[in-house]
Design a binder for these strands. Sequence first.
DNA 1: TTGGAGTTTTTTGTATACAATTTTTTATAT
DNA 2: ATATAAAAAATTGTATACAAAAAACTCCAA
Lengths: 243, 243
Amino acid sequence: MTVTREPVVAIKSEIDRQDTTRRAKAQDLIRSAILNGYFSTGQKLVERELCKLTGASRSILREALVKLEASGLIERQSYRGYRVATLNVQKVCEIFELRAALETLAAELFTERASPEETAALNQAYSNLEQCITAFDLNRTRAAKQQYYDVLFSGCRNVEIRRALENIIDRIYYLRSRLMQDPNRRMASLEEMRRLTEALIKRDRVAARAASIAHLEAARGAVLLRMAQDEVDSKAKTTSTAI
Amino acid sequence: MTVTREPVVAIKSEIDRQDTTRRAKAQDLIRSAILNGYFSTGQKLVERELCKLTGASRSILREALVKLEASGLIERQSYRGYRVATLNVQKVCEIFELRAALETLAAELFTERASPEETAALNQAYSNLEQCITAFDLNRTRAAKQQYYDVLFSGCRNVEIRRALENIIDRIYYLRSRLMQDPNRRMASLEEMRRLTEALIKRDRVAARAASIAHLEAARGAVLLRMAQDEVDSKAKTTSTAI
DNA sequence: TTGGAGTTTTTTGTATACAATTTTTTATAT
DNA sequence: ATATAAAAAATTGTATACAAAAAACTCCAA
C-alpha cells in the first residue's frame, strides 16, 4: 500500500494546474472586468450579457459565477441574479480586520517555519518590489507584490490561511489598485514592508507581528481616506450636474 | 436619493434567505452525506451518481459542487472530477491554526462590541448547551453549539470573519462529530466554554482570548489523539484481514 | 397624472443533448 | 503471463432548449 504525501511547500500555480477550462477563463475575465472597473459596484450582472462578453455558454458561466460569489466579489439573490458587491466603510473595516488577522498570523508563522531559501527569496522579492515602486511601474509593482506574498504564504506552511485570504483577496486588490495611484502612499507602503521584511528575515516574531499590523493599519487608513475623498467628489459632481 | 443601509447585525439565515432552489438542496444533501460518512474521505464523487442521489440534473449538481469545493470539503481536478477532501494530521493542524485565529479574534471583538442583549443571549446559549451536554443529547448539542457560535459571531460585528470560518466550518464539524462521542471530551469542552463565556460576559478581552485559545488547543489535541487511535485501529484491522 | 390589473418580455432556474477527455477493456505481440 | 496499443466505455466539459419567476410594459379607470 503506497501513501501519497503532500509536498511540504504548496505552490498556488501547482494547486489548480492545467485548469484551462472555459469556466476558469470566464471566471478570470469577469473578475478582471470587475477589478478594472468595467462593471461598477452594485451593478446588475445579466448572464446573457456575460456570455457575450466571455464567449462562454450559460452553464459554464453560471459555474464561474458561483465561484466568484464564494470570494465575495459578487452577490446573489434567488431568481434575481448577481450584482457586483458594494463596499462601504463598514465592509472595508471588516475586510481589513480579517486580513490583518490572517496576514499577521502568516508573518508570525513565517518567522518560525520558513526555510533559509525562503527567507532569501523573500529578501529578493522585496528588492524587486522596491525597484518596481521606485521606477513607478504600476503593472510590475502589482506582480511584484503578489510574488512577495506568495513567498510569505509558502513560508508560513499553512495552505488554509492562504485559502481564506484568497477568498477576500479580490476585494483587497480592488482597494489596493486605487491606493497605488498615490505616490506618497506607495513610498510609505514600501517603507512599511521593508520593516516587515527585516523582521521576517531576522525571524523576530514580535517585530514581524508589529510590522504587519502597522502596515495594515496604515493601508486601512489610506483606503478610508480615499473613500471619503471619492464620496466628496461624487457629491460635488452630482451637484454640478444638477446645476 | 435614498441610501440603503445594512442592518447592524447580519444573521446567517437572513443572508441566503429563501434559497429553496434545487441547487441549494443538492448542496446540502451532498454536504450531509459527506459529514455523516456516507462518502468516505478521498472517495471519488461521480456526477451521475450524485444526480441519482439528489434527484437534481447535472447542471444544477455541478453548480452545487463548485460551491462545496469553495468550502474545501471536496477537491477537483480537471477532467477527473471531484473527490472528498482528505484530512491528514498536517491539514488538521492548519485548519485549527486558522480557526483559532478567527474564533479568537471574534471573541476579542465580542468583548468590545456586543450589545447587552447579545451578552445575555450568549449566556442563555451557554446554559442551553450545558443542559444538552449533561443530558447526553448529541443532536441537540450540535444545534446548541451552532446557536452559541451564531451569537458570538453576531456580537463581534464582522460578517467577513464568519464568512471565512464558514469556508472551513464543514471540515470542523466533521472533526467535531467524532469528538463528541467521547464523554470526557464533552465535559472538558463544556468547562472550557464556560470560562470563555464568563470572560465574554465580563468583557475581559485578555481573558476571552486566553479562554478561546485554550479551548481550541484542547480540541486540537483531542482530534489528533483520536486520529492517532483511528490510525492504529485501521492498521490492526488491515492486519487481521490479511491473516 | 396616478395607480393597478393583466399581458408581454426578460431573466433566472432547470433539464438534456453533444463534445472532449479520461478510464477501462480487449486484442495482440513478445 | 505480461506488456503494449487500439478500441470501447465511462466521465467530465460544454452548449442549447425548455420552464418558472421576475421585471417591464400596456391599457384602462379614477
